[in-house]
Amino acid sequence: MSSGERELMLTGIGGQGVQLAAQVIAQGATVDGKEVLVFGSYGGMMRGGNTDSTVVISDQPIEAPPVLSTTWSAILMHHQYWTPLRERIRDTGLVLVNTSVFEDELDADRYQVVEVPATDVATDLGNPLLAAMVMSGVYGRKSGLVSLDGLAEGMRRSVPPYRSQLIEANEGALAAGWEMAA
């Protein structure tokens, strides 16, 4: 919450690409020359289970510890485990919500809500698993924290070798998200 430090909390269910999105945004910001911190969930990440992550981005050395109680921004991929995050979003913050699957009320008068039908867009692109990359593209542009080039390079650094066949599709999804945020 110090001047210049921007926090992002991501929540979703295991398999939605929440950890990958956190890595892509964080790697992208690193490529762009920012100071970055990421701390993921630790309780046995599994498909279908709870997954969340915290990213902090700054132009200065990071003051924030790995676990934060409030956040400037949030990416909500799914509603199932989002309750603990609800009160952590600060007033006037930036909230990206995956409207394709998210089913809960948001406090739209308290913070800026950006509705992104990420899973639908990803399905149109040929693979619903690209939803997290669509969301990352939207986040980069809306937050002003990461460039599209940074995101693309961050994605290439984050994708494991056995998934390298997805790099091109991921790039397309990042670009699609970036365009949607215009």
Binding site: Q23, T30, L37, F39, V67
Partner: peptide
């Protein structure tokens, strides 16, 4: 925390 936090 130290072992598992990522930082630039």
């Amino acid at each position: 925390y130290l072992a598992h936090t990522y930082q630039a």
